[in-house]
Design a protein around this nucleic acid. Structure first.
Lengths: 333, 333
DNA sequence: CAGCAATATGAATACGTAGTCATTTTAGAG
DNA sequence: CTCTAAAATGACTACGTATTCATATTGCTG
């Protein structure tokens, strides 16, 4: 591997000068500068980022702990995060986190001495949170948050859940179902609470059999739908905890011949890109901003890293209904 | 930041011993071992991965240069690659590459001294290829390949294109269109060649107006479809260069009221996860293996890194038709 | 051309780890 | 208890860079 010393020898200067050429070229005389640049070119020299990190104590690397990409929400956010960070000169270390590899994911993120951590996958009461805080590495959560979070970006989850129910209630639905995710997660918890409140406000009675908390997996969603369709009195509308869940249910409903929205209406939350697809046209609740949560979060994180501002970042984006074709005014009998 | 020296001082041993505890604990006496472990625990010590990389000349990091995630093919492969590499103890540096940031992407991949590079985005005749080879870093391409590639994993692109055309020809279609991507890319080039051969073998005449090479963007695909639908004699089947293109066309067709498959049939290539969705049900050509190309490639790459085997890896997976609901036997007039 | 400030360069060092080699300690044999 | 081989530990150095401080060179003023 060719080092700055090699370049120095080749150019007949000191290693220091080579370093200067790369970092503070204005401090080096033109002829010397060119000699060195030529040497760099000739030897195909590329500075070693690790060595640089070691001495500067900065890695120009960010750890991204994302949820899995089969959830289209994370497709959108990962794209935004990676692209923005790359553009700003940061490398992005990506891990897709699930329940099993969570703690290990944190460990490697910490051991790599990254400049910052951006993560979605955290529980509302997660013990790892304290360790993260002790590490004194800037970090921010998007989508989900922790009970004590100081830096996070989310949508107004309560309102999203509320609007979700309100939307189908306004379409005359009275038999509303909720298919959500684990209540240990802030998003699902608050969305569900919003859903409940809307039902309460509109005097909708909720059958216990209509309320399901899945593990959000494809299988889990399919089972949930199956359970609902087995009921004597089936719900006419399903409010879901996320677009991912909604898409899974929509998929399975179509496969087993349940017509959406004619037999049953489905509402998502998140307004992921995919929900707009002509064949999908999912009615959903999403941020009024066109910037997704990942982008908002990575912008803040990099600001945090570079300015060392320690101001609290609490962003809660307002939401609205995106009414598409998976919901329909119920036909009164 | 607490270093191994701090641990050494705390435990009353030398830094060497601390290092040994972490790397070759069998060479250290029990009591000493425990003293050190306690110190590590007490100080919350985490070894600095950068320093380790510097001295060992190994980073335990892999650079992934992927295409953008709005192409669902890369959703599948990125998931497989990141998860497999993570499981094997590698960090994955992800970049989503497009035409503009390509060279820069290579530069950072090289500057980080990664242990290996896995990439899809390379042109069939790409000058960067030589530089990669000179770097002497193990690298492998998946999906696309370079003319001189020695390590690659692909599907049988020619056969895929061939089967694509054959499938709709067998459904009595005679007015076949091809909407592909740039022919500078191996996949599109070979798929197109296969398509042409099938048409030739079955005496299908191709109108020039039916052959379109798009930039694969959403807009590009929409324009292509619009152009086709403006023709006096519209094609009855569109064979596309990839599922991504097919999905974009399907999206737009639905949005503008063109019925698929009743008005027009659409075939993709890649068999991405999303193509199976109940609402999509895209007929497509894909690998007979259930492992996606990303997984196959990352497995080989890590083998390459760890065994230094320099054997050529040329994998070309066989393909078959996945017949779903976007193609249909044409109604003879 | 002297003298001095400003500019340009280089030598030495630190960053945190792993590995080499030398040294000390331990265990076992006689 | 002595001697020797094996086991355990430590001092030192390299990795490739950026930075500090010292030194050399240049340019300018009078």
């Amino acid at each position: 591997m060719v080092s700055s010393k090699d370049v120095a020898k080749y150019a007949g200067v000191s290693q220091t000068t080579v370093s200067r050429v790369l970092n503070t070229p204005e401090l080096v005389k033109k002829p010397t500068l060119e000699k060195v640049l030529k040497a760099i070119e000739a030897l195909n020299y590329v500075p070693d980022a690790n060595a640089r990190s070691l001495v500067q104590q900065k890695t120009k690397t960010i750890a991204l702990l994302s949820g899995p990409l089969h959830n289209p929400f994370f497709v959108d956010t990962t794209t935004a995060i990676v692209n923005y960070a790359t553009e700003k000169g940061y490398k992005v270390n990506v891990q897709f986190v699930n329940d099993e590899n969570l703690t290990e994911a944190y460990a490697t993120a910490i051991g790599t001495k990254v400049d910052g951590i951006i993560l979605s996958c955290i529980l509302y009461d997660d013990p790892i949170f304290n360790r993260l805080q002790e590490m004194n590495i800037p970090f921010i959560t998007y989508n989900r948050k922790h009970r004590n979070n100081e830096q996070f970006v989310e949508i107004d989850n309560f309102e999203a859940g509320y609007l979700s129910a309100k939307h189908v209630i306004e379409q005359q639905h009275t038999r509303l179902s909720w298919v959500g995710g684990p209540l240990t997660v802030s998003t699902f918890k608050h969305r569900y609470e919003g859903f409940l409140k809307a039902c309460e406000d509109h005097q909708i009675e909720l059958s216990d059999a209509y309320i399901l908390q899945t593990d959000t997996s494809k299988k889990g969603c399919e089972d949930a739908l199956a359970a609902l369709l087995e009921l004597e009195e089936k719900p006419t509308a399903i409010c879901t905890g996320s677009d991912s869940i909604a898409l899974n249910i929509l998929d399975h409903a179509t496969q087993i011949g349940a017509a959406v929205p004619d037999d049953i209406s489905i509402v998502g939350i998140d307004n992921v890109e995919l929900s707009q697809h002509g064949r999908i046209q999912l009615t959903t609740i999403g941020s009024i901003s066109e910037h997704n949560l990942g982008l908002l979060a990575i912008e803040r994180l990099i600001e945090l890293i570079e300015n060392k501002k320690n101001s609290c970042i609490n962003i809660t984006e307002s939401v609205k209904v995106f009414s598409r074709s998976t919901t329909k005014k119920i036909k009164r009998r």
